[in-house]
Design a protein around this nucleic acid. Structure first.
Lengths: 140, 140
DNA sequence: CAACCAATTGGAATGATTCTAAGGTGCAAG
DNA sequence: CTTGCACCTTAGAATCATTCCAATTGGTTG
């Protein structure tokens, strides 16, 4: 059973909540993101999806990714000068970008710290999201 | 006296430290960044610089910005799907991106908090830099 | 002065993303 | 049902930001 099947109701649910349809393309794109959580680019997602659905177009992959983001099932990450990367991890987390390997790791963000970080904002600033990106090297 | 003049020695110093020349183009680009700290894009910097140095090319602006970044006099900020933006604020700070106005504000980052944030990293992760981006609306 | 390396320039090339127009799909009302 | 319509997908063109390239200019050093 594919991972997406386990999550299919979640996906269908979220899409329905936004008045959108649960199309096969959206299902496969989401499944691909869940299966290999290495923060792929749209092109990489396209390549993976194509393996099991050869007729899909790049434009559709962009559309599906955008849809998933708008449903809060996926978030985007941006490293300098690079293409957008996609992350299906819904828990609050930071990203560590390893300069040596080019890989990105999710770092769990304790709720208390998240609050503390938000507290540096002046009264009249209302943050809807916080993104924390580390850059450096991971030893080993 | 231009702002750059005040900082000219800083700039020349930093460039020299990296074995680079203090060219007029670099001076003007840096001056423009210091004068209006609104996180401009390369195109915006180009437009501003052109006003006082009409013969400069866009490629040179990109080159100068890259040089300033490599000297640690300027840092880059990235918001989703947008062009790179440049920031001459050297103090540790986060960025708040106002969705309503599209403007970006610097938020001072207390050193203690910065440490606390870094402390969520596992032992073997060595972060060279941390970037914190808030997104939301500023009331008023 | 000569030689050399650094820096600038304009234009071409690249890469990522968005746009557009045309065709397909599925639900809903009659 | 079956027709209409809004949603989706698709291919390819267009756009935007950035980088590359090759030629020229400029400054420094021997």
């Amino acid at each position: 059973m594919s991972i997406a099947t386990l999550q299919a109701d979640t996906l269908a649910q979220r899409l329905a909540d936004s008045g959108l349809r649960a199309t096969p393309q959206r299902g496969v794109v989401y499944d691909v993101l869940l299966r290999k959580r290495d923060h792929p680019t749209a092109d990489e997602v396209f390549a993976r999806v194509k393996a099991e659905r050869p007729t899909i177009s790049l434009a559709t992959v962009y559309n599906c990714l955008e849809t998933l983001v708008s449903c809060d099932l996926v978030r985007t990450v941006h490293f300098e000068r690079g293409p957008t990367r996609y992350c299906p991890n819904l828990r609050p987390h930071a990203h560590f970008h390893d300069e040596r390997t080019g890989k990105t790791h999710d770092i769990d963000l304790p709720p208390a710290l998240l609050e503390k970080v938000k507290s540096i904002l002046p009264e009249d600033y209302d943050a809807k999201s916080v993104e924390i990106i580390f850059r450096g090297k991971a030893r080993n």
